[in-house]
Simulated scan of single mutants.
Amino acid sequence: MTILFDLDGTLIDSTEAILESFYKTFEIFDLPFPKEADIKALVGHPLDVMYKELGVEEKIVWDLVDAYKEHYREISTQKTVLLPFAREAVELASKNARVGVVTTKTGKYSKLLMEHFNVMKHFEILIGREDVKNPKPHAEPIQKAIDFLRVDKEDCWMIGDTRMDLISAKNAGIKSVAVISEYEAVEELKKHTNIIKSNALEAVRSILK
């Protein structure tokens, strides 16, 4: 069995770090601040997509992305926390399955965060944004993790909190479990999976039953 986890909204809460980094870049480039709710609604998408959706001109999008990453790197460990039951979820999963992370966050910083929380040791693979050409909801990130682990798709699961995770799982031909977070409405999750749990630990337990 293989269990793949998303990060934001699934295992970690980095909302404060994300919002601060976005507002910092809009300040640096003297652009009007977007609404907090509009930023949150885009969490799970690649940064360049988020900036475009927030109205940033395409010609400067990557400049803002670079500025975001620089600020996020400085504050991420101080302004990110593990979600309730996340550590227990990862530990339980690692005792019963092969475990990995598939995220749209930058893999380099994601690994540092996971090491900071002393859970990286449980993961055999972490696929981040820079590891793929096509991020979620494309199948590529999940497929890359599966290829690395050399596991059977028939017994592979993705746990995530947004449609991006669930659609990616479907596109890759694996099963999924949704967890409830502030980033996606439950009604939207129901469109893409019939298994919805309150947190990652409950999601892992449902898979192991």
Rank of each mutant, 00 (worst) to 15 (best):
M1D: 12
L4T: 08
D6V: 01
D8F: 00
D8Y: 01
L11S: 04
D13K: 08
S14N: 12
I18Y: 04
L19K: 13
S21A: 07
S21P: 06
Y23D: 11
F29D: 03
L31Q: 09
P32F: 07
F33T: 11
A41H: 06
L42G: 07
L42K: 11
V43H: 03
H45L: 15
P46M: 11
P46N: 07
L47G: 04
V49H: 10
Y51M: 08
Y51A: 09
Y51V: 13
K52F: 00
L54S: 09
L54G: 07
E58A: 07
V61K: 09
W62R: 13
W62E: 09
D66L: 06
A67W: 06
K69D: 02
E70Q: 15
H71G: 00
R73Y: 10
I75V: 15
S76E: 12
Q78G: 00
K79C: 08
T80H: 03
V81N: 09
P84C: 15
F85G: 04
R87M: 13
R87S: 12
E88C: 08
E91P: 01
L92H: 03
A93Y: 00
S94L: 05
S94T: 11
K95T: 13
K95E: 14
N96R: 13
G100L: 06
V102G: 00
T103G: 09
T106D: 11
G107Y: 07
G107A: 02
G107R: 13
Y109H: 12
Y109N: 12
S110D: 02
L113I: 04
M114L: 15
E115I: 00
E115N: 09
H116L: 10
F117H: 08
F117M: 04
N118D: 15
V119L: 14
V119K: 09
K121G: 01
F123C: 04
E124C: 01
L126P: 00
I127G: 01
I127S: 04
G128H: 12
G128F: 00
R129I: 04
D131W: 06
V132F: 03
K136N: 11
P137G: 08
I142W: 02
I142V: 15
K144F: 01
F148E: 15
L149E: 12
R150Q: 14
V151C: 10
K153F: 04
E154Y: 02
I159F: 03
G160Y: 01
G160C: 03
D161Q: 05
R163P: 00
K170M: 14
K170S: 14
N171R: 14
A172L: 05
K175E: 15
V177T: 02
A178V: 06
A178G: 13
V179A: 08
S181T: 03
S181Y: 01
E182P: 00
E182Q: 14
Y183A: 06
Y183V: 06
E187N: 14
E188C: 02
T193N: 06
T193A: 11
N194E: 14
N194T: 13
I196P: 13
I196V: 11
K197H: 01
N199Y: 01
E202N: 10
V204G: 06
V204T: 04
S206V: 12
S206Y: 00
S206A: 07
I207E: 03
L208A: 09
